[in-house]
Amino acid sequence: MKVTFKIWRQENRNTKGAIKEYKVDGLTEDMSFLEALDHLNELLVLKNEKVIAYEYDCREGICGQCGVFINGRAHGPHDNITTCQLHMRSFKDGDTIVVEPWRAASFPVLKDLIVDRSAFDRIMEQGGYITAKTGTAPEANAILIPKEVSDSAMDVAACIGCGACVATCKNASAALFASAKINHLNNLPQGHPEAHKRVQEMTYQMELEGFGSCSFTGACEVECPEGISITNIAEMYAKYTKAKLFG
């Protein structure tokens, strides 16, 4: 299988980047997209060129480290997957594949396809936790949590923090990410005591980081590898209003 990659190359965050073209042969349909890039990098090394920098770690769709914009879609042409779960069988022989880094003011490019997503960590820092020191927990079954509550918390807790929601959003909004964490913790009884504080502080940090606002295009829930629903954003708005009124 033979494809033409058009890949964003950029030395570091202070330099300008540009798309560069690479023709790659010898790929197979079984290869994952990242393995195809690995293959390209080996060819580049042998040609005495610098390798393309891109991120990955677990390569099974859970760590959230990989993520690039492939042919006009976050994580590539399929819905609800990560870049590492994309395989070359999704492309045709002779295809041109355009690969770009996530684009958002809050996600500056560090090199080539690697962006800095530490803004997410800073949002988490502002209350994306339950204040409970090690050693202070009551018996696990002492607080009953109905299955529906636990299940819906799990639905959003599944967020892998890859940033596809921000990448695909025309406004670079981090609303889906923030709402996932807020709803996970605020809906559990353990998270109730800090609920009002949490939703205000985390969303405030989201604003400080320079993310845009949500237009409910719904693109994020289509690209989210965990399929987290945008109704969570609405739920976050409700929690925010409640916190402002009664918090």
Partner: peptide, 20 residues
């Protein structure tokens, strides 16, 4: 340790009655 993680908000699987 299970007590600890439940307190930290880990949504472990539960029965309809609310127990783990």
């Amino acid at each position: 340790l299970i007590d600890h993680f439940v307190q930290q908000g880990v949504p472990f699987a539960r029965e309809y009655g609310g127990v783990l």
